[in-house]
Simulated scan of single mutants.
Amino acid sequence: MIINPEKLKPEVSVIIPTFNRADKIIGAVESVLEQSFLNFECIVIDDGSSDNTLEKLGELHDSRLKIISQKNKGVSSARNNAIAVSNAGVIALLDSDDEWLPSKLEKQLIFMEETGLHISQTDEIWIRNGKRVNQCKKHEKSEGLFFERSLVMCMVSPSCVMFTRKFWDSVGPFDENMVACEDYDLWLRGFEYPVGLLRERLTVKHGGREDQLSNNVSCLDLYRMYSIAKLVRSGKLDGKDRALALNELQRKSGYFAGGCRKRGKLDQADKIEQLVDSVIKGLDINPISFIE
């Protein structure tokens, strides 16, 4: 019997970055290993954990599971490095404190194949402090092209998303300057790709944990402003989309500067307003100044 080597190649690469989540990572990985779809590789990259994450992972035995490590460089670096060694033509992300329902990969892969889309996401179940909660209306997922809404906040959940290698090669990698909102930045850069929505709650998203980035990084809008400024500076936006981006940049900077002034941080308020003014005028500023 002749075995086609292509049949041995995984169809999906699942990427899970983790840092000091020994109490959660096993649940995330097991939810992948228990998928009804079987032809995948699961790459867990440990971002320099100081707890017993690697010891816990070592207790799992499955040929599809690959565990790699790096010095602590943040989630963007971890995802980039894991994707760099992945082998499949389709990539699915999962955060180390979230989980998938058993049919997630199977149903989403069929959805991607039937629609011909290069990026899609599923709906999700929200768990906060151990209790299921309803999503606010502003968090309802969109589909298709929704650039304007994406400027306001991140509209694609990493643990729900699946994308093709073509999408990644065109839009990636994650910006390693960003310790937060790196997902917002990537999806914003992929504004030309319509996003599919599989309207089934196939992802379980956990929140309310003290170690989550959103609870430990102040002024998330600084990172969003940095992202918008980069995109404007890239020259890829047409007149309408550029105007939308600049309007949202001004809106975010207004809230930020107002908050700074209330707290007596006048220099920081002035700095952001001057940067935004320079972006609007098309001056050649380095967007990294927003987050330095």
Rank of each mutant, 00 (worst) to 15 (best):
E113R: 15
E113W: 14
I110N: 15
E113A: 14
I125N: 15
I127S: 07
Q135V: 01
C136N: 15
K138R: 14
M112F: 06
T122D: 07
G144P: 00
E124F: 09
L145S: 10
D123K: 05
E113G: 09
S142G: 07
K138Q: 10
L145Q: 02
H139F: 06
D123A: 02
N134Y: 09
N129I: 14
T122G: 02
I125R: 14
G130L: 02
G130V: 08
L145T: 13
Q121H: 05
E140L: 12
W126Q: 08
E124M: 02
T115Y: 03
Q135L: 05
W126C: 12
L117H: 07
K131S: 01
L117Q: 07
K138E: 15
I110F: 07
L145G: 07
H139A: 15
I119L: 03
I110W: 09
I127W: 02
T122L: 11
K141F: 13
N134V: 10
E113M: 12
K138M: 07
E124N: 13
I125E: 14
K131W: 08
N129C: 15
I110G: 12
R132Y: 06
N134M: 10
L145M: 12
H139I: 00
K141A: 02
H118D: 06
K131T: 01
E143H: 11
S142Y: 13
Q121E: 12
H118L: 02
Q135P: 01
